[in-house]
Write a protein that binds this DNA or RNA. Sequence first.
RNA 1: GGCGACGUGGCCGAGUGGCUUAGGCAACGGCCUGCAAAGCCGUCUACCCGGGUUCGAUUCCCGGCGUCGCCUCCA
Length: 452
Amino acid sequence: MLHLYDSATRQVRELALREPGKVSIYLCGPTVYGPPHLGHGRATLVYDVLRRYLEWTGLEVRFVSNITDIEDKIIERAQRENRPWEDITTKCEAVWWEAMDAVNFQRPTDTPHATEYVDEMIEMISDLIERGHAYTTDDGIYFDVQSVPDYGLLAYQSLDDMRAGGGEREVHGAAAKRHPADFVLWKLSKPGEPAWPAPWGDGRPGWHSECVVMSLGILGEGFDLHGGGQDLRFPHHENERAQAVALGQRFANHWMHNGFVVDAEGEKMSKSLGNVSNLLDLIEHYDPRTYRMVLLQSHYRSPVKITQDNLDAAVKALAGLDAFAARTSEVPTAHPDGSVLAEFRSLMDDDLDTPRATALLFDTVRAANAALDAGDDERTGALVATIDEICTALGLELGASDEVPTDAIDKAATLDAARAAKDYATADALRAELQADGWTVETGPSGTTVRR
RNA sequence: GGCGACGUGGCCGAGUGGCUUAGGCAACGGCCUGCAAAGCCGUCUACCCGGGUUCGAUUCCCGGCGUCGCCUCCA
């Protein structure tokens, strides 16, 4: 069974399942107010690999990932561009899915939207008020973090320490709050802002409430795993957890957080810093599998550096795998090698050790190529099947992406004819032509093949 | 200031108290090939600095230096 680092207990521990054979996962999704950046891509890809792997091992996965479609940044952008906020959320969400589809992210089983859960949030906030965990100020309802005894569990420090270390940071709405860490549950709206009716006045829910309502509502109490990027650990996840605790409900059993994407200088790449590297740009300029390959070769908790060189290396690695897929496409299928698969599982079960799992993949490909060269069809077939299994579990698709047009096939045939006639000048010219068109030309004992 | 993470060979990036040892990319040599491509075999460059523990540390401990993150919206 999978052992995963748990951010709450700060150790690798078995992912215990609430229900045998079934896994319930909640992943914090995007706020839709702009194009997805590389960090979004990493998070979704990390959890995509997690999900595919779990499913590959035979588990049934309920994978919930929300869309935050009420948020200050959305409103700000709507006002700045003078257009309806729904226009922004709708379009940004469409772009989001376009990008996610491109990188082969398997769509979640459920994608709840914050706007669909406003009633439930109002209900929950009322409950929190009744239980004495929330209070009213001029501009809304706030959560009283001091009313939760273990607040700070995911921040790895107590409320006092947080305050002690606070520095000269400006705390939003500090004057009206009982504690600087108190966060807004319900924000009363100003004229022109989106608003929903509530007992405390028209307004909109705060960011930290939707995930509580949606995760608990869809997956139920004590669901298995809650995930997101490192930056969500605190305050977002802490604040979710605090609400659940205040409600007296069992929340996520296990917490998982992926590391950042950093730029060439080693700095975090995020939208808020302005050094945006758009996921759409990446998939436009590179094979969409490239990013997955880069991420698989580093551990999900480590920061990963995205540079040109890095991506180019992954493209080359992928080319090698594709070449393998191409040369073994005719190999009759066989039973996969159980010991390799067992090793793969033990690697993945150890906190999703994809770097070593991909190392195993490459080793296996090498062994399969050698077996093929040696004419050992049986061994080759078994290894091909093994590689296929591993790739399925990792969400990697191998093989030529494009159909080869007939004129290219004809040229290859002419090339072979020229070679047979020892007319090497013609053969070389044809090869150069094909290569100029972007084809990889391979001439082997059985003739010439072209592929992208 | 508080808390956390990290510093590995030309680049990226794993891992480990010693043993055979990542892996990818690049480079070099060989096999194969008419020449290439693809593939295979082999080679090369390591563990920030200073102490300590140990028979032995890149790996554990302490200190230092450096980088990054969170504490404010953020995957």
